[in-house]
Structures are given as structure tokens and as C-alpha cells.
């Protein structure tokens, strides 16, 4: 929590506009009503950069990260699969197909601001069940098969998004946005859209945290202890998909956040989902915030797509987890 607060402060302070750290805080503090009495020494442009662009972007990064990490924790818990994450399961790409379709064909207005996330949720859910269907053999789901199916659908759907973007005379930039994710050029509206999903998803997952702990012992074992196994699976999968869809709707596909963050939290805080879930939300926020800060400042004023940064960290981590699983299986007992 403290780390997140410090990260927000630091990230707000640095950027490509060349405004000094002292000025940033002067501007921000002046936004508070009881400090706004004096004449501001800053240009309206500087003020706009800080309040309209940077502050919203920082907060958005935190929310997107929280959503993705929560979704990852949910998927990992309910599928008992350490490699699951909105990206590796293809859910993120599935959601992006829906969101990209709506945006590129200008259908945003159909259901108000909820159009994009709802359509993204629908296509994300369809993808998730597609992945389940692909990976099922004789009723059982193998961990690696599930992820393989997820990655296959993810690359197929990614190609589909690229195809749609090229059809609509979109620029390469937009393709990059949908495939690699970005938080550039977002506004406060996106923030307000994301907030209710997080406000709904976090308590819902927390409510099922103890049931997810029992899932670790096996589904049947959990059932014997009085867990409604099917209901838990359905609710957690839907909540996780919803969080993914909401995040993808504003930021495109950002990979591996949901994989890396819950694992690090598990290393730090142990296997209890009552801790993993809330800490993943905080950790995810911090992680994406740093990734985004890096994305916008490393080659400033040029932006690196956010997904590139998370993939550079996440993909080797994914490989490491896969490798460790193989070692475990190879050893006796």
C-alpha cells in the first residue's frame, strides 16, 4: 500500500514535458480547493498536462493493473493452474476483438459508455469457453494443454484484430495499441468506466477467497467441505473475465500482469487467497504504474507500448514458471 502511494508520487513527478518536480506538486496542491487562493505561477498548458494528462494516466495505470492482477489471481485460483492469466488464456485477446470491433466501426453509442466493456466481456467469455472446449479431453483439463489452447486462440484473435484495424484504414499505431496495450491518450472518462468493475470484482473475489483456498486441495475435497464448486467456478471465472474485459477496453492487451503479480504476492505472503486477492490488486496497480512510467519516459518523448514493457518482464518469468513445473514433475513423489 505504502509502495503504491510512493510509486504514484514518483510517477506523477516525472514525464516528458520537462516540468520540474516542485512545479508538479505546486500545481497539484493548488487543485485542492482550500489551497487555491493564490495566483498560480504556472501556464494553463502546464496545469493541463499535470491534471488532465498525467494524473489521470497514473491513476488509470493503477486501476488497469489492479484489474488484470485480480483477474490473474482469480483464474489461477479457480483453475488451479499457476500459468493462467488473462493473456495466456486468450481472454484478453478475446475481449480486444469485441472492443476493437465496436471502436473501429463506430458503434460506441449503442449502450452508452458501457457498450465497449460489455461487448468485450461477451467476446472474452466466448473465448474462455472456446479455450476450455479446445483443451478438454475426456472431461479432464491438463494445465499445459489449457495454456497451449489459450496461446493459440490469443494469436488467432490478435491476427483478427490486426485485420480489422487494417480494413478500417487505421494506422499502425492503433494496431500496436490493441496488441501491445497503451495508456496514452486516455481520459478521466476511462477512469470512471473502469472504477465500477473494480468495485464489483474485488469484493466478489474476496467473498470466494476462502473457497479458493479449499480448491487448492482439489475440487472434490472442496465439495466435501461444503463449497458449492460449480457456483464458485462460475462466479470467479465471470468476475475475472469481467475485470479483464474492462481493463482491455481502456488499455488494449497488456500481457503477463496477471501472471507475474499474483506469483510475487504468493512468494511474499503465502498461499492464502484472502491475502493474495487484495494484495494482488495493490501489487498489480504498482506494477503497471511502473511499467507505464517506464514506457513513457525511457525513450522520451517517444512512447514504448506498455505491453512491450510487461512482456519483457513477464515472458521470461512465464518461461521460468514453466521450467520449474517441469522440474517438479520430473522428480519422484
Amino acid at each position: 500500500m505504502l509502495l503504491l502511494a510512493v510509486s504514484i508520487v514518483v510517477s506523477l513527478s516525472i514525464g516528458s514535458a520537462g516540468i520540474s518536480v516542485a512545479d508538479v506538486w505546486d500545481i497539484l496542491l493548488r487543485q485542492l480547493p482550500w489551497l487555491a487562493d493564490e495566483q498560480s505561477a504556472h501556464t494553463p498548458g502546464e496545469i493541463a498536462i499535470i491534471t488532465q494528462v498525467r494524473l489521470s494516466r497514473v491513476l488509470l495505470a493503477v486501476l488497469v493493473g489492479a484489474c488484470l492482477a485480480l483477474a490473474g489471481a482469480g483464474f489461477q485460483g479457480v483453475l488451479r493452474n499457476p500459468l493462467a492469466d488473462p493473456y495466456t488464456l486468450g481472454v484478453a485477446s478475446g475481449s480486444s476483438v469485441g472492443a476493437a470491433f465496436i471502436i473501429l466501426f463506430g458503434l460506441q453509442a449503442a449502450l452508452g459508455i458501457w457498450t465497449i466493456p460489455l461487448v468485450a466481456f461477451t467476446t472474452g467469455t466466448v473465448t474462455l469457453f472456446g479455450v476450455f472446449w479446445l483443451s478438454r479431453s475426456k472431461g479432464a483439463m491438463q494445465i499445459e494443454t489449457l495454456i497451449l489452447s489459450g496461446v493459440i486462440l490469443q494469436s488467432f484473435l490478435g491476427a483478427f484484430v490486426s485485420f480489422m484495424v487494417s480494413l478500417s484504414q487505421g494506422v499502425v499505431n492503433q494496431i500496436m495499441f490493441w496488441l501491445m496495450g497503451s495508456l496514452a491518450m486516455r481520459s478521466w472518462d476511462n477512469l470512471y468506466m473502469l472504477l465500477p468493475f473494480l468495485a464489483l470484482g474485488l469484493p466478489l473475489l474476496l467473498f470466494y477467497a476462502q473457497a479458493l483456498n479449499l480448491f487448492v486441495l482439489g475440487e472434490r475435497q472442496a465439495a466435501h467441505l461444503g463449497v458449492h464448486v460449480e457456483r464458485t467456478k462460475l462466479v470467479v471465472l465471470i468476475a475475472s473475465t469481467l475485470l479483464t474485459a474492462a481493463a482491455v477496453s481502456v488499455s488494449g492487451v497488456i500481457g503477463f500482469v496477471g501472471l507475474v503479480v499474483p506469483h510475487l504476492i504468493r512468494l511474499l505472503a503465502g498461499p492464502d487467497y484472502r491475502l493474495i486477492i487484495p494484495l494482488s490488486a495493490i501489487g498489480g496497480g504498482t506494477f503497471v504504474l511502473w511499467a507505464d512510467t517506464l514506457a513513457r519516459t525511457a525513450l522520451s518523448p517517444k512512447e514504448i507500448p506498455l505491453g512491450v514493457v510487461t512482456a519483457l518482464i513477464g515472458a521470461p518469468f512465464f518461461a521460468y514458471l514453466l521450467h520449474r513445473r517441469k522440474l517438479k514433475e520430473g522428480s519422484p513423489s
Binding site: N213, L217, Q221, L225, V227, P271, D272
Partner: peptide
Amino acid sequence: ARMMAVLQQGGLPPVGFTVREVVGMGRFP
């Protein structure tokens, strides 16, 4: 689950929870 408990074939998997935590899971119902 408050009336009936089941010991499964194959026992419990080697999870990261402590012995006390796992025994405490028996209180879930």
C-alpha cells in the same frame, strides 16, 4: 458438510499451506 466428512483416496496434495491451516480448513462448513 457439518454432518459428513470424507477422506479421499490418494490423500491431500503437497500444497503450500501449513498443517494447522489445512486442519483449520475442516472448519469451513
